[in-house]
């Protein structure tokens, strides 16, 4: 591991100044992702800016019923109001990693965790994300974990977060602070597709800090995750669904998929199949079919197409039965 300067700012302003003053500086939160990347030589920052003591670890409910989740709230967050208002988020969090990791992993770090693509994590392989222009070893490698949607000739990696998928279904807004002050990034614009610059994964600027995640009041939600084993594994395919039904008719629906793209993948076509229809098996089945629209399977990941169809159908069915 390359030596780095460790700094422990006491305020958001100081942290932002530290990031701005050193182009090689990176934030460290729980460290559950970054420490392995440092150890394996995937990242080699000149400075680590510790954001654990900035007071960003609070949940604050707003008068209009929305909630601001501090960037340093841990993924083990246990709050009965959060469970009631956003069951899909809490299910997504509990399905991620292990209890020990969730006790340290932060919301900010979860959104900014790096892909689990093995070729990214092993510096002996070419990877455009780790080393822009070097090529993509995954293109001719094991395709089982690769993206079904939004991939490019330079990168086929998927985003590993469960939490982020739920946040897309729940229409979250990411609050960030930088040298020019505060701004708000809608969660759907937070992660970006690889295109020709897979090294750029989010809309966050290098000298900006995530300070909170805002969730507006949301309809009932649910999260369903399929993986290689029952627990402690990343999603092969997952779905977060949030559906508002009144008088037997779907008024609004948001559906997002995990494990299939470089960002949580919103399924507009599936949502359209539901809105204005009864929330029953036939429209749910159509939504499952529509969720696969635009899928571009690659050698090794063809199984994900049928999995998408079924995960969406089952997530919606379970939400309807809840």
């Amino acid at each position: 591991m390359r030596p780095f300067h460790y700094s422990r700012p006491g305020s958001v302003g100081e942290a932002v100044r530290a990031l701005g003053a050193d182009p090689g500086a990176e934030v460290i939160a729980g460290g559950t992702d970054l420490v392995t990347l440092l150890r394996d030589g995937v990242r080699a920052p000149s400075q680590l800016v510790d954001v654990n003591r900035l007071g960003l670890d609070r949940l604050s409910w707003q008068p209009n019923g929305s909630v601001h989740i501090g960037a340093m709230c841990r993924n083990a967050v246990d709050d009965s109001r959060l469970r009631r208002a956003y069951p899909g988020l809490v299910q997504a969090l509990r399905s991620g990693a292990s209890p020990q990791i969730r006790n340290r992993a932060s919301f900010g770090g979860n959104l900014l965790q790096r892909t689990r693509c093995a070729y990214f994590r092993l510096p002996e392989f070419d990877c455009n994300k780790r080393n822009p222009g070097s090529g993509c070893a995954a293109l001719n490698g094991d395709g089982a974990q690769t993206a079904l949607f939004g991939a490019s000739p330079s990168c086929v990696a998927v985003h590993p977060s469960d939490c982020a998928v739920a946040l897309v279904a729940l229409n979250a807004v990411v609050h960030v602070e930088g040298p020019a002050g505060a701004r708000r990034i809608p969660i759907e614009e937070f992660h970006v597709l690889p295109g020709e610059t897979p090294q750029r994964e989010t809309a966050l600027r290098r000298d900006e800090l995530v300070v909170a995640i805002e969730l507006p009041p949301a309809p009932p939600s649910h999260y369903l995750k399929f993986r290689d084993r029952t627990s402690f594994a990343f999603a092969l395919v997952s779905a977060a669904v949030a559906v508002e039904v009144s008088g037997g008719t779907v008024r609004s629906a948001r559906i997002a998929l995990g494990g299939v793209a470089a960002k949580p993948w919103r399924c507009l076509a599936a949502e359209r199949e539901l809105v204005g229809k009864p929330f029953t098996a036939p429209s749910i089945a159509k939504a499952g079919d529509a969720a696969t629209e635009g899928a571009k399977p690659r050698p090794g990941n063809e199984y994900k197409v049928e999995l998408v169809r079924r995960v969406v159908r089952r997530a919606l069915t379970e939400l309807g039965n809840a």
Binding site: P9, G10, A18, L59, C73, N103
Partner: peptide, 28 residues
């Protein structure tokens, strides 16, 4: 289960001279 907003809130506010600046010589 316990009700809590977050698992740890870091350490309590340091008393006396700011330990951060004393020990780590923070940013600038």
């Amino acid at each position: 289960m316990r009700e809590k907003a977050s698992t740890f809130a870091g350490e309590p506010e340091p008393s006396g001279p700011n330990r951060r600046t004393v020990l780590v010589g923070a940013v600038g």
